[in-house]
Amino acid sequence: MTLASEVLDAARARRVMIATAESCTGGLIAGALTEVSGSSDVVDRGFVTYSNAAKMQMLGVSADTLSDHGAVSEEVAAQMATGALRHSDAGIAVSVTGIAGPGGSEHKPEGRVCFGIAQPFGVTTSTVEFGAIGRHRVRAATVEHALNLLLGALRA
């Protein structure tokens, strides 16, 4: 059984729909979930908010939060996840925002990804430093980590 299948089964067991809010993965998390046949009963929608404007318009991320913390921050990940929950019929949402590479800076290195998990009772965030392992591998690792976070939250 795939990780995505496990997430879907856990969502079915909890009777909740899932929403995704993705920046650096460009929809790959929603893609992994919807790759599984029958996923439409628990996948509500995915938001691909690559630009800051999209994060603000589609998810309600605050311009102040973006300017104060930058797009790659736990503060933005939290607002992305809560925005996805608010703008969907989902009971759980995952968000990702990061620097897949190539590039980055001293303060925001390549491979840094911030995650958010929002549920009606609150939001949790975390940051993972995948390192400069290449764009494709950062994105793949981000999808896997996001699915694991969803699975853990659904089973908690």
Rank of each mutant, 00 (worst) to 15 (best):
F121T: 11
R137Q: 12
T124Q: 13
G152C: 08
T82H: 09
R137E: 11
G101D: 07
L59E: 14
G122D: 03
E35P: 00
D64K: 14
G98F: 03
L28Y: 15
R137T: 05
M58W: 09
H107L: 07
G122R: 02
S105F: 05
V36H: 02
D89F: 01
H136W: 10
G98S: 03
M80Y: 05
L28C: 07
A100S: 09
G103F: 12
R86L: 12
K108I: 11
L66G: 09
A156K: 04
T2P: 03
A4V: 04
G31I: 02
E106D: 12
L147I: 03
A54T: 05
G98W: 10
P109W: 10
G131V: 05
G91Q: 08
Q79P: 06
I133H: 10
V143F: 08
N148Q: 15
R112N: 07
N148C: 13
A30G: 14
G122S: 03
V43A: 03
S67L: 10
S23E: 14
T97M: 00
G91H: 06
R14L: 05
E144P: 00
V36A: 01
V16C: 12
N52P: 00
G116K: 11
A81R: 13
K55A: 13
R135S: 07
A19P: 00
T125L: 04
V7Y: 04
V7I: 08
R135N: 07
N148S: 14
H107P: 00
R15Y: 00
A77Y: 10
T142P: 03
T34R: 01
V128K: 13
F47E: 12
E106C: 00
R86P: 00
N52Q: 12
V7G: 07
L85I: 05
G83Q: 07
V43N: 05
V76C: 07
G31K: 00
D89A: 11
A13W: 04
E22A: 08
T65F: 06
A78W: 04
G111I: 01
F115D: 12
A93G: 01
H136E: 15
R112A: 04
R45L: 02
H107Y: 08
G27M: 15
N52G: 09
A156N: 08
R45D: 02
E106M: 04
V42E: 10
L151F: 14
G98R: 09
A10Y: 02
D64L: 13
C114A: 15
G38M: 04
T2W: 03
G60P: 11
R112K: 08
H107K: 12
R86G: 04
G104L: 08
G27W: 15
Y50W: 12
G31L: 04
G27Y: 11
V96L: 08
G103N: 10
G27L: 14
D64E: 15
D64Y: 09
G104T: 05
T125I: 01
T49G: 07
A10R: 02
A19C: 06
A4N: 11
E144S: 05
T65I: 10
G70W: 11
L150E: 12
G83P: 01
T65H: 09
M56T: 13
A141V: 00
G116L: 06
E106R: 10
V16L: 05
A32T: 02
